[in-house]
Nucleic acid binder design. Structure first.
Lengths: 335, 335
DNA sequence: TTGTACGCGTTATCAT
DNA sequence: ATGATAACGCGTACAA
């Protein structure tokens, strides 16, 4: 007497088809070179009838791969990361893999929690999107040996990374402002401990020095990458002194700056020209349309996922630098 | 001679601590009421030393729950879904669960592929975000018996759903346009087979009828929920006839409409007033700021995740209707 | 050509 | 207070 196997398992299919689980496994995973068509048909029929779905957990346990990628972003609500997520997911889905999404809000403790969650889930790889901070100690002590990791943006972690030349990107923007006669350029930076702030600030300082612009340290202010931070910092700067250009290290801050300027009756670009960074889709929707440094976040995501799913070993510390381009729009269009 | 257990397993910890795997499991999962502190300490020490991380796959296989939620969205690049995703992920992360993100691009075959991927991964629940289409046959034949499902937006699936009153939302918008003397209102609908289009169109038609506005069928046009679709449809409508108001079924289409109007030299709101729907963050960043029907996508996501993770059984077919609110901004501000 | 049996790493049941 | 052992469902080396 055949014991009734639990429904939806390979064993149940085997019983129905009158074969062994081995045969079921072989037929259903395409290794059926030596199995007659008639047997295969019986197995397929039984599988369909029982709506058999191989248990990916059991398979993962056995094979040591989960067909999944972890994605760590500061905040999926931030437009910068949509395209990254799309890129990762498009590549993953095409490969039959799945993407696990986690948000850190740039809080180290949450980032650590995300990593724990993902390592628990035994993801095949992790993509860190969004730059790191200068104190990475919360990421020490993890065992990365069986997880492929790729970082996007500046990081100190010993993994291959995908970046742009942050310093040159901002330097280019400052040069453009200088070309349209800006001399005192307000710099809306991110937080001081963000690596992306440090890289971009280097570009700002270098360009300001080369061009002989005003090096007043009060022109550099720090805040989050949000519209409200940009607005407040700019309002404060307006109250404290004067400037004729703004370079913001991300577009949200730039848009906030334009609000503050509009509220104060300052004309953009005539009185103050404004440039953002990242070129998120809103940049061209706001008024005036925002000049911004553009690069393809979607390609960042695609490349990161391909590196993780690819068979080539990941060279630790390798850096792939994508090109950037300054898109000139109305916010710097002085005739 | 003790066989060397594979590193990073409970067995390895057990050997190092000089206890059995049973004890390790008990101590590490908090069921150690009857185990002396000294033994527990040995186990904890061994676990830390070996950086032991319980294998969630093995645990899931054994316990029948994966601590994961699948999220199906048309496109994570669409701002509507960021907040949904954040809401789901915030609740999930707080519960130690993980969110698997999948994009469908509103293509039935991809949606089907997403469901397959998620059911393969044995997610505890699935959140369908974004309305369904009137022909749901590609979702027939799935075995949902061991997966909790919640839909967001109009769907025909027999699962609990979270929605707004789409018909009333659009009706309210049309009433507002009528109040500021619009008589011929262009309706930028989604695709005809989208349920959300059908619901919102019902609201448009009902309001137009009650208010005695122009019922010219040419005033209803269909397109994707994109800026470019809104722009093209509006340009065509401008060429074909006249109108003094626009109701778009989503904000991207409304923003596209405003571009087309601006290009044609038509003033907003004086010549044509424009209203969008969803109130995504860009709505208040564009110029003129866009009047839109607002509701909390973040709360949609939170509630959906809570229903999935909650212990209460999900009542099939139950519908939770969230409130909506018309936010009046400059695009309808006629003095 | 097909089947038996073991192991993946965990938790739960039953002993002791 | 602790341990041996049997599942969970699959893949595969080894047998037949």
């Amino acid at each position: 007497m055949t014991g009734a196997a639990r429904p939806g398992t390979a064993k149940a299919v085997a019983e129905l088809a009158g074969v062994s689980v081995t045969t079921v496994s072989r037929v259903l995973s395409g290794q059926a070179s030596a199995i007659p068509q008639e047997t295969q048909d019986r197995v397929f029929a039984a599988a369909r009838q029982l709506r058999y779905r191989p248990n990916s957990l059991a398979r993962a346990l056995r094979k040591g791969t989960t067909q999944s990628i972890g994605l760590i972003v500061p905040d999926i609500s931030d437009a910068y990361f949509h395209q990254v997520a799309r890129g990762v997911e498009d590549v993953a889905q095409a490969a039959g893999c799945v993407v696990i999404l986690t948000n850190t809000d740039r809080v180290p403790a949450r980032e650590e929690a995300c990593v724990n969650l993902l390592l628990d889930k035994r993801v095949d790889g992790i993509v860190f999107a969004g730059g790191g901070i200068d104190d990475d100690t919360h990421l020490d002590g993890f065992d990365w040996s069986s997880t492929r990791v790729v970082t996007i943006g500046p990081h100190q972690l010993p993994f291959p990374s995908i970046t742009v030349d942050d310093s040159a990107a901002i330097s280019d923007a400052v040069h453009h402002l200088a070309e349209i006669s800006c001399r005192r350029i307000l710099c809306l930076a991110g937080q001081p401990n963000w690596l992306v702030t440090q890289r971009r600030l280097a570009g700002y300082r270098q360009a300001v020095a080369e061009l002989g612009l005003d090096t007043d340290p009060d022109l550099v202010v720090y805040g989050d990458f949000t519209e409200s931070a940009g607005e407040e910092l700019t309002a404060k700067a307006l109250a404290a002194g004067s400037f004729d250009g703004v370079i913001a290290f991300n577009d949200y801050a730039a848009i906030g700056a334009m609000h503050a300027l509009a509220s104060a009756g300052v004309r953009v670009p005539d009185d103050v020209a404004v440039i953002g960074c990242d070129d998120i889709p809103v940049a061209r929707m706001v008024h005036p349309a925002l000049t911004s440094v553009s690069f393809s976040q979607y390609e960042f995501g695609r490349n990161a996922a391909e590196m993780i799913l690819g068979s080539v070993p990941l060279p630790a510390g390798q850096r792939i630098t994508f090109p950037h381009e300054l898109l000139r729009r109305h916010s710097t269009a002085r005739r």
